[in-house]
């Protein structure tokens, strides 16, 4: 038995982390945020120029695309460590949305999958999931193909058949857009299990939230070691230490919950939805606590736009509320445990 992702998945994620530390450091992230509204079309607003191509060359775009269609063929347990790295970097690229879409198409198979998945793996097409005909969509600004879930199943709708209006939010690196689908547009994706794709997305985002929590803890600890008051590092004060220790505990206990959920979703276990909700809930809570604490430990400097911390805070707030809020997931679990 093993609850950690496999060694090779961890190694791959470490390589992604290296790439992101060079190409998407805080300075690059800040530049990406500042690019919003500067470009002509707005299509790539908030992204890091050229990064998607490099990620695709590494295999990140086609992470879960089957090997015969040009991808790496990983399941959710293998892809998860990359999502953690995306969170750690507060990455402003559609890694999760594209992976969720690719997982959905892979599961369904058929014409749409064969048409789009090779392009996804090559980094030529970006996917996004939309919940209904008029929805706020993460990565909607950037997507080429929308997978639209409603009561009748899943439809694949090309960008030409939707209206995309950017939805300015506190997190410009999210590609958030209001997406309206033209009546009758798109093609049905036969056999697509939209509910499972939703659970898949929850776990992937939970992975990002774990990465965010770790990043904020590292930032806060790093700051506590160098910032001095009363002639000592503030990290020597117990009130500071104990808050950071609590964040460490919350994060440490969220990670195995997220790992287990990846397994449950990948193997479509009967507890799949509950485990996915637990993952999103535990990771959302831990990341929210990390965000609060990191801000408190940074204090005045943390409350500025000039310090980098705010980009991680805002990504945390965004992801905690997307794909079902932390509270919504808790309620879903409660209903399942207690009935009613």
């Amino acid at each position: 038995m093993r609850l950690q992702p496999d060694e090779d998945a961890l190694e791959f994620a470490a390589a992604v982390r290296d790439l992101l530390s060079q190409t998407c450091d805080a300075q690059a992230l800040r530049a990406a945020w500042d690019s919003v509204g500067q470009g002509a079309s707005g299509r790539d607003d908030g992204r890091v120029p050229g990064l998607w191509k490099r990620l695709a060359d590494m295999g990140v775009a086609g992470l879960v695309v089957p090997e015969e269609l040009g991808g790496a063929g990983l399941d959710l347990t293998g892809a998860l460590p990359v999502f953690v790295e995306a969170g750690r970097a507060a990455l402003p690229e559609p890694v999760v949305g594209t992976s969720v879409g690719a997982a959905l198409l892979t599961q369904a198979g058929g014409a749409v999958a064969h048409e789009w998945l090779p392009r996804v793996a090559a980094g030529e097409a970006v996917l996004a999931l939309a919940d209904g005909h008029d929805a706020l969509v993460v990565g909607g600004q950037w997507a080429d193909l929308f997978l639209l879930g409603d009561n009748d199943g899943v439809r694949a709708v090309a960008r030409d058949d939707v209206d995309v209006d950017s939805a300015p939010s506190i997190d410009p690196g999210l590609g958030l857009a209001r997406v309206r689908v033209h009546a009758g547009a798109g093609a049905p994706v036969d056999n697509a299990d939209g509910r499972r794709a939703f659970d898949w997305a929850c776990v992937a985002v939970a992975g990002e939230l774990v990465g965010l929590a770790r990043a904020m803890l590292d930032r806060a600890v790093g700051y506590a070691k160098v910032r001095e008051q009363f002639g000592k590092p503030i990290g020597s004060f117990q009130a500071v230490k104990h808050q950071l220790a609590d964040v460490f505990v919350a994060t440490s206990f969220a990670a195995p919950v997220v790992n287990r959920a990846a397994w449950s979703v990948a193997h479509d276990l009967p507890t799949r939805s509950r485990d996915a909700s637990h993952a999103k809930y535990a990771a959302g809570r831990a990341a929210a606590q990390a965000a609060r604490t990191a801000l408190q430990v940074h204090a005045g400097i943390g409350y500025t736009y000039e310090n980098d911390l705010h980009m991680w805070l805002k990504r945390t707030w965004s992801l905690a509320s997307q794909w079902g809020t932390t509270d919504w997931h808790k309620d879903r679990i409660a209903r399942e445990l207690l009935g009613g």
């Binding site: 600890v221 070691k225 590092p233 990290g235 020597s236 004060f237 117990q238 104990h242 220790a245 460490f248």
Partner: peptide
Amino acid sequence: NEIQRNVLAERVLGLPRA
């Protein structure tokens, strides 16, 4: 639990002793 938090902060997170 206060002692445990001290241990975590100092030995795992590497924060300085008081």
